[in-house]
Simulated assay, not measured.
Amino acid sequence: MRTTNAIGQYGEDLAARYLVDNGFTILDRNWRCAQGEIDIVARELQTLVVCEVKTRRGLNYGSPLESITYRKLSKLRQLVGLWLRQHDLRPGEIRIDIVAVLLPHRGGPSVDHVRGVA
Results as ranks from 00 to 15, higher is better:
W31P: 00
R32A: 00
C33N: 00
A34S: 11
Q35C: 03
Q35T: 07
E37L: 04
E37Y: 09
E37W: 10
I38W: 03
V41C: 12
A42K: 00
R43A: 13
E44P: 06
L45P: 08
L45M: 04
L45D: 15
Q46W: 02
Q46D: 15
T47M: 10
V49E: 04
V49R: 01
V50E: 02
V50G: 04
V50N: 00
C51E: 07
C51V: 15
E52L: 06
E52A: 10
V53I: 14
V53N: 06
K54M: 10
R56C: 03
R56N: 05
R56W: 02
R57V: 11
L59I: 11
L59M: 12
L59H: 11
L59R: 13
N60T: 13
G62R: 12
G62F: 01
G62W: 01
G62C: 03
S63R: 13
S63D: 01
P64H: 11
P64T: 12
P64Q: 05
L65I: 09
L65R: 13
L65Q: 12
L65Y: 01
L65F: 05
Y70C: 02
Y70N: 06
R71I: 03
L73V: 08
L73M: 08
S74C: 08
S74I: 07
S74H: 09
K75E: 14
K75C: 04
L76A: 04
R77L: 11
V80A: 10
V80D: 10
V80P: 00
V80Y: 03
G81M: 13
G81K: 07
L82R: 04
L82V: 14
W83R: 02
L84N: 08
L84H: 07
R85L: 13
R85W: 13
R85D: 13
Q86S: 12
Q86W: 01
D88H: 14
L89K: 15
L89M: 14
R90G: 06
P91T: 10
G92P: 04
E93C: 13
E93Q: 14
E93T: 13
I94T: 14
R95Q: 14
R95T: 09
I96D: 03
I96L: 10
I96C: 09
D97Q: 04
D97G: 05
I98L: 15
V99W: 08
V99D: 09
A100S: 15
A100Y: 11
A100F: 08
A100I: 11
V101W: 08
L102W: 15
L103W: 09
P104I: 12
P104N: 07
R106N: 14
R106Q: 15
G108P: 09
G108K: 06
P109I: 06
P109V: 07
S110G: 10
V111L: 12
